[in-house]
Nucleic acid binder design. Structure first.
Lengths: 343, 343
DNA sequence: TAAACTATTGGAATCGGTTACACAAAATGC
DNA sequence: GCATTTTGTGTAACCGATTCCAATAGTTTA
């Protein structure tokens, strides 16, 4: 059974392809198609189950009704759920979503952007990696619609939706301090990305404001690309080398997860031996016993803001050059891992 | 700056579009393009950064080099990671991936299949919902390549990659029995899907083989579509109503997660008050204290088998009519939640 | 030397829509 | 009653790659 085309429809109705096209694209009124003709066409289309060939349409119009979603890791709780919401919203607006994970690798990210470029996506939602400055600038120069989420490229003006990492981190640290913790260890990854540097700044500022000092040795940075075991070992060593600490601040949720593992290996109990807070929520932190205090990212809000912003840019309501940013405030969720300290 | 096309390349080299096309598609030898010409073309292509327009190619060939991935919930640990691996493997083979979540809703699933059909994906990987029998039959009849994963449609022969739910469940139950548990509660969802019925059968058979009876009241079924709170309440009630139970078998990982929550609410300690095992692994089960014994799905294996099978079908090495199924054995991971019982 | 090949390359139809433009018929104006 | 505008529909160029079918030049064979 051959696929049916507009031509077939037109022939069967003894009308022209133009007429059919106008009807399909809802331009009947604008182009002055008589209601009778329009009905005839619509009925046959339904009867035959005709669907316009997207390749042909795409070739002619240059629009694919497709957006590219580039995240760090679709298998991750945060990005997986972001993806889900973006996909639903995109669908509502007639768009499909291509997705890909960068694994935080610059080359992968570069390839993905180019690859999607070739399959002519109409716009991107991207979680940038550190080294793709050039690619982002190129997209901007060529006026391709895109929105950065979760992290920015330093000194590059773009549309974005990010978390207020600084204030989240500040408030989370503040919560610890208010509960009596003073020797707080900060565990993060080596990274120049704004999201990470802002978190550190927030932590430092909260400590400074409370007139607390942060000795260099109580800050640990690990390599993102190291294996889980290696990171756990590193954290274990760090914890053992810093028995004075009364609380730990993990800068990301996966660090928090690995950190809890490390603390168990050190036979330390949360929160009696040491309190724990983490940036980013996930199922584990909520259900663990004790549950973990976190600065949570409002996933739904981030996802919806980013797809809405992108669609605006695509529809040109929002010129690419007029950059707009949404800064989402994290929510501090206080759980059992950081109770008031008893002096 | 206008996009450059094959025509531009051909013109600049004073050659024909045909020649350029042959070179691009690696048919130089076959079509007898001289090495000199080939090099000339390749060099200019690289220099100009030319990429063939996928819409045009798609229109002409009818192939989109795209596969559709339809899962239950991309935000879920299992499917998120499946998606990630499938995407990487697809990419290696020159394919892009469209994805969508059904949320286990028949209508959504139907729409997604049709939608992808229109954007002419070359093949599907689908986690079926219960009510899409007709759609699957239609795909089959029209000879569209697809592979079902995670669950089958009863009495419909298709290519598939699923878990051996029966044996996983049998072995997991067996593990409990071997460790001395006899009054085992089974908590599942209302579902006719083979994956769920097989799990129950495996459980029942293991019990029967051990000459243990399963009273009706020790089996609980909840509604998948109910809210998390409601399910947790239901489980709580069930646990309180069945104090005789010495172990709980959760048939899915999200039930396990909610169940642990419920047990905490009942002030019951795992495993001293009651042992716990669950189908499907996740981070939580591994890191929880005590950690939870599970029948784990080998995610990587499932993902790779399914994409490989689909690509085979697409390449016609594997006719759609010659259905092939891969049955993956789950791995029983014994952790702290199900120790040997002391009499 | 003409015929028959072979090795390369080019011309042009084609895929299925979109849309500028042309054109006919009907309506309106003067 | 003729010119002009409005209304409705058809024609055909075009998007950019693929591929069948020639075509040309150079070689070999009879």
């Amino acid at each position: 059974m051959k696929k049916i085309s507009m031509k077939d429809i037109a022939q069967e109705l003894n009308t022209s392809i133009t007429t059919v096209s106008f009807v399909i694209n809802g331009k009947s009124a604008e182009m002055g198609i008589s209601p009778a003709t329009e009905k005839k066409v619509r009925d046959l289309i339904k009867k035959r189950g005709f669907n316009p060939n997207s390749a042909a349409r795409m070739l002619r119009t240059g629009k694919s009704k497709t957006i590219g979603l580039i995240v760090e890791d679709i298998g991750n709780y945060f990005f997986g759920n972001i993806a889900k919401i973006i996909e639903v919203e995109a669908n509502k607006n007639g768009y499909s979503v291509f997705f890909s994970s960068t694994e935080n690798n610059d080359d992968t990210a570069r390839q993905l952007i180019n690859k999607m470029r070739n399959s002519s996506v109409d716009g991107y939602i991207i979680t940038a990696t550190q080294g793709i400055r050039e690619e982002i600038l190129k997209l901007k120069k060529e006026n391709v619609p895109f929105v950065l989420i979760d992290r920015l490229i330093p000194d590059v003006e773009t549309n974005y939706v990010i978390l207020d990492n600084y204030s989240g981190s500040y408030n989370l640290t503040r919560h610890l301090i208010d509960n009596g913790y003073q020797k707080i260890g900060f565990i993060s990854i080596f990274s120049e990305m704004s999201m990470m540097t802002e978190r550190e700044k927030g932590f430092q500022q909260a400590m400074t404001d409370a007139k607390l000092t942060v000795p260099a040795k109580s800050i640990l940075k690990v390599n993102f690309s190291d294996s889980e075991e290696k990171i756990i070992k590193t954290i274990t060593r760090y914890v053992k080398a810093n028995p004075q600490l009364d609380a730990l601040f993990f800068a990301t949720n996966y660090l928090g997860v690995m950190g809890i593992d490390a603390l168990q290996k050190c036979k330390l109990t949360i929160p009696t031996d040491i309190a724990v807070v983490s940036f980013d929520d996930n199922d584990l932190f909520r259900l663990l016993s004790p549950s973990i205090t976190v600065a949570a990212q409002p996933i739904k809000e981030i996802a919806i803001q980013s797809i809405e912003l992108l669609l605006k840019v695509i529809k040109k309501e929002q010129k690419q050059s007029m950059t707009v940013g949404e800064i989402i405030k994290p929510e501090i969720i206080i759980r059992e891992s950081s109770p008031k300290i008893k002096k």
